[in-house]
Design a protein around this nucleic acid. Structure first.
Lengths: 328, 328
DNA sequence: TTGAAAGCGCTAACAG
DNA sequence: CTGTTAGCGCTTTCAA
């Protein structure tokens, strides 16, 4: 049914070695025979069996990508760029979704390893010493994105701490005297890898502590942050709600509208990430741009370098930018 | 470096066949030896080489997914569900993005074929007789989603024509006397596979023709549909803008807001697809739900059936639903 | 320039 | 219950 190099060899009356030389543009073959072989291959509808090739070459030209899910806009944009860049470099992408489940993540890593992907781009939900040595034992190039594991693994992202610090500074400059910091992921600090969120929180704290002493602060880590917000009684301070991700900010905005609380007249609002659906909300949300395209492309570049040049791990920090909307 | 069944065999003083029986739970092995082998495998850190297995089994337990891009919410939600369902069934997902490029699509198909994926789920951009026979010659299970190719290939989706017909009916019931149909993809009719959009258009035409004779109709196929809309002079008819996809409706809504045209007071607006970001726009958009979750899961089920039971191709039609928002 | 043979790591078939 | 052998389709020596 399926035609192999052996079939071509027989059909042409040459050896498989010669067929291979023709098919893969390798030297040491008579142009005449090469032409014949190629024609025959074409005629017989030959298709290279990439698995067999991978088996002998010890390289699959594929990378594994492990993220939470694609409902999250960040990840879908990220993977859009990863796939594009990877294929440009000849690599194919295995996509696996963990749904933030630590066991599933490990299963995915295992499985991708068994399929011998050449490397991994992942946003880890696991963390800790054991996990680290587990990953190292894989002996496979890894690039982390979003959440960092440690300096032993490549990481591509922005400086979340500095960015959030800048956001706080931006808020205070607009004369806000009170900041409500909304970051439900923080509740999972003990449990999960929430590196980016932790960094943002650190930046926030540094901001309110260092920049100005008399800023009132309220921190909401509750998963039911809308309910929590509702409980807050309004006061005379000029207040801003600072969300550690746009998705929370969108929900907050929706809630505020439903309560006829005007943004920014009654309360300021600012997000983080600049996800693409912001384009359609009103008032336009002030936020911090997380350059997902650049991150995706850079992650692939870094991974391919590690795969092909056996390069060492590296941290690549991309520039963020405060995006001024009309919500603050 | 990497440990193989041969290594285990030697370490245990048994044959590779025995190791295989132990590792893969096959009958005909002494429980004692089995236990020993498994322990040794564990101890040596054995990992099965899935490529080698695939090579001999002729099955890779992987499927190829080919869609346009992940900026499109429909596709990211779709793939979210495909990945989940596929892995549940033991299949891994190769993701490839065509960016609506017909040549890239063919390259992807080719490449996935060479990697010997067990089947394909795709939203094709190509069409035509030649393409069909090309696909058939692949001799690989294929399930189409979004755009149909022909009855020779499995298709999972809604009845777009009927759904759009229902949408028109819904509009007319609200006493609208004029409908502006916005569907930029129609401009590509000759060139690309826009099956779903064509069906919707047919449903639209059937709706305005059959339901009521005196409905005024304006059709915009222009890619610059906002500019086209702007040129229209307002008149005394009660008018609705019917967009063949929510993404266009969102843009239209944005434009209308910018012009201080009230929705639905001044003009009605209705979309199609019910993409998830609608949640955050105001007024809430009336739309037709395209059950992407169900479609993703069904597509995988259908594909796996074709792969494993060598089932014939099938068309699976899922229910749509008109979702009443406040924009009409 | 070409051919022959070995082997990637696994599974399957048959013999013992 | 276990071992041996052959082979999946390809690449890569090493000889000729």
């Amino acid at each position: 049914m399926t035609v192999t190099t052996k079939d071509i060899a027989e059909a042409c009356g040459v050896s498989r070695g010669t067929v291979d030389r023709a098919l893969n543009d390798r030297p040491g073959i008579n142009p005449e025979t090469k032409k014949q072989v190629l024609q025959m291959a074409e005629k017989m509808g030959y298709r290279p069996h990439l698995l067999a090739r991978s088996l002998v070459k010890g390289k699959t030209m594929s990378i594994g990508v492990i993220v939470f899910d694609l409902n999250n806009r960040f990840f879908s944009q990220l993977i859009n760029n990863i796939e594009f860049k990877a294929r440009e470099q000849g690599y194919f992408v295995y996509l696996t979704l963990t749904n933030k489940d630590k066991e599933i993540e490990k299963e995915c890593i295992n499985h991708l390893q068994n399929r011998r992907v050449d490397g991994l781009i992942m946003c880890p939900i696991n963390k800790g010493q054991k996990y680290q040595s587990y990953l190292k034992d894989l002996n496979m190039p890894v690039v982390t994105v979003g959440n960092k594991i440690s300096n032993d693994f490549s990481y591509v992202g922005i400086n979340d701490k500095k960015a959030m610090f800048a956001a706080v500074k931006h808020i205070i400059k607009q004369d806000y005297r009170e900041i409500i910091y909304v970051s439900p992921p923080l509740a999972k600090m003990e449990d999960e890898n929430i590196y980016a969120q932790e960094q943002r929180f650190k930046g926030f704290k540094a901001g309110v502590e260092d920049l100005e002493r008399n800023i009132k602060v309220k921190i909401i880590k509750n998963k039911k942050y809308i309910a929590e917000l509702a409980k807050l009684n309004s006061n005379r301070n000029k207040t801003a709600i600072l969300c550690s991700s746009d998705v929370f900010a969108l929900d907050v905005l929706k809630y505020l509208k439903s309560k006829n609380i005007r943004v920014p007249a009654d309360i300021g609002l600012i997000g983080f990430d600049k996800i693409d659906m912001l384009e359609y909300v009103e008032p336009s949300l002030t936020t911090v741009s997380y350059p997902v395209k650049k991150i995706g492309i850079t992650a692939v570049e870094q991974l391919v370098e590690q795969i092909e040049d056996n390069n060492k791990t590296e941290e690549r920090i991309i520039d963020y930018k405060i995006v001024r909307g009309k919500s603050l």
